[in-house]
Design a protein around this nucleic acid. Structure first.
Lengths: 337, 337
DNA sequence: AGACTTTAGCGAAACGATTAGCTATCGGGG
DNA sequence: CCCCGATAGCTAATCGTTTCGCTAAAGTCT
């Protein structure tokens, strides 16, 4: 592989001039410029990113660490993020913490030694599991979930509104015994959505029964077993609010396996969506996140932090969910519709 | 950020000794070793990957360029690849060529300047669009699709067998007028699957009618419009073989929009799968690829090439598809079942 | 014409690690 | 008692860029 010295020698100039031509960083007479570019072309010279990184102390790499790559929600984020990162002139380094705090810790350290210029993180652990120095010296944007007490920029949705919207919809259909399958309580997303649900019910003088609120991992299997258990008892809820798209699949499967039909016997509303929803029957009624917008915004903030040295104040951007009505909910039988 | 010199000064040793301790590359007395490690800890020293890369001429980066990140099939590959890459001690740089040869060209150049140690590529263009030098000096494994005349290792499935299996199944159900919605003919995958279909029919003295074989982009929308057109005419096929999971969703939607029901009026068999298949109704009958195995194998080959300098012969690994029977096919009405 | 400013281009010092080759030091054998 | 080999650790070169500061030639003003 040809180096800048080879080019300089061949063109009869100094390496500084070659560098100037490459980066358009100083005026070079057209005569020298043409000698340099032909030399570059003939030698098929491409500058060594490693040397450049060392000198410039930049890597042009942006890391994205998501919580669960098997979840279509995060797959969708990856898709958007790749496009946005490329559009800003960076490359995307992808990590999957698989909802495991230990894995996440290793990832943070790896991101640091790779020298990524910035990272977008979907945090996995509880707030107290993070050390301050894990974020020092690297631009960070938290996406989807936030960490209490952390001073990084965040881009999230209004989880409280999401839970509230979905459950208000169920209440409007006449449901009173509403259950919920939700995620781990240490995550801001799960907690916010459940709070929204509780507030929606409280606003009408109701409250979920103790056994009707279950939490587990944000995974299909966890949701399946929890839902099977909850829906097996005779005083089962007439409607369920599921806090996550993948869990919704698990819940629907559990219901089918119990011999119940989805809108007729149990209504299901969820927050967040799954891919292939076009073919899913019945189509879920759900509150959707504007995933692409959120991801783009996260990268805009991140690149801003990377490229402007200015210590702007912390920014927290909150997106509003939108209720998408599918076919997974029905008015409560014999009740007002 | 502390450098190796700071550590050396603080520990009262030379940088060579610090390096030796870090990399376990030479014997260091336990006294010095302990001085070095405490200095490292106190200064929170982490070696600069950039400097290391420059010196070692390695980057510990593996690039993965897939054809379409919006396709769950590739999302699944990304998931597996991230895990495999991490397990081998590398990090994954992700690119999406979005089925566009021009974008792919830019990506190849970017991979090169990033100095990735190797790449896994799902090629997008026709064979003659590739230049030899685009692959020179960087370990490459082609995944899923191959490029005729290219000398890189490949990991693919037996597309011919996939088409043949799926269509044999339809034939066994008594279908005779079978159509196909398939991908671009310049891709080895589309061509192989279609050939498999044709051979399956030929083996029984049949051939698809000219208007019943349609190709388009590997996208839901393309499949939708093509299927709508094909299924609108009176001599429409009684069964369709769809060469791709995402297209199958489009075809099912087209059929529903035409007022036809899926197994009863039209049987659908496809190759390759989509995520969320657990919730999809009716579940697709399809030939599945062992995605995780294929991806792992691709990375095994790649790391092998990167780490062994030996010029082993080119390896082409072909995986066999498996037929998964769902509920999207029925015996032809009034025919032998 | 002399003094002063501009500017194209060069030389060499960084950046922070790895590593080949060298220098002491120590113990043991003749 | 001297010499030799082994070995722990150091010195300095090196990887390929970028960039600061400099030189010398050319232009501008009085």
């Amino acid at each position: 592989m040809a180096t800048i010295k080879d080019v300089a020698r061949k063109a009869g100039v100094s390496t500084a001039t070659v560098s100037a031509v490459m980066n358009d960083t100083a005026f070079v007479s057209s005569e020298l410029r043409v000698r340099v570019v032909t030399a570059i072309r003939e030698l098929r010279y491409e500058p060594s990113q490693a040397a450049r990184n060392l000198r410039r102390n930049r890597s042009q790499l942006i890391a994205l660490a998501v919580a669960d790559l098997s979840n279509p929600f995060y797959a969708r984020i990856v898709w958007s993020a790749e496009a946005a990162v490329a559009a800003w002139g960076y490359s995307l380094v992808l990590f999957n913490s698989d909802e495991k705090p230990d894995t996440e810790r290793r990832i943070l350290s790896r991101i640091r030694t790779l020298g990524c210029d910035g990272m977008v993180l979907v945090p996995v652990g509880a707030a107290n599991q993070y050390q301050q120095h894990e974020f020092e010296g690297i631009a960070t944007v938290l996406l989807g979930r936030s960490i209490e007490g952390n001073s990084a920029d965040t881009v999230t949705i209004d989880n409280h509104a999401a839970g509230r919207q979905a459950v208000d919809y169920l209440l409007d259909l006449g449901h009173r015994r509403i259950g919920s399958v939700t995620g781990p309580m240490q995550l801001s997303t799960s907690k916010g959505r459940l709070d929204g649900m509780i507030d929606a019910m409280a606003a009408r003088g109701l409250a979920p029964q103790p056994g009707h609120v279950r939490s587990g991992e944000f995974r299909e299997e966890a949701a399946y077993s929890v839902a099977r258990d909850m829906m097996g008892s005779p005083d089962r809820p007439t409607a369920i609010y599921v806090a996550n798209g993948v869990m919704a699949i698990g819940v629907m499967r559990a219901i089918a396996d119990l011999g119940l039909r989805c809108p007729q016997d149990v209504s299901i509303a969820s927050t967040d969506t799954v891919a292939g929803a076009g073919g899913l029957k019945p189509r879920l009624t759900r509150t959707e996140h504007p995933i692409a917008d959120m991801t783009n915004e996260a990268l805009r903030l991140l690149v801003d932090r990377i490229e402007e040295r200015g210590a702007e104040p912390v920014r927290n951007i909150i997106f509003q969910p939108a209720l998408i009505v599918g076919e997974s909910c029905m008015p409560l039988r014999g009740d007002a519709g």
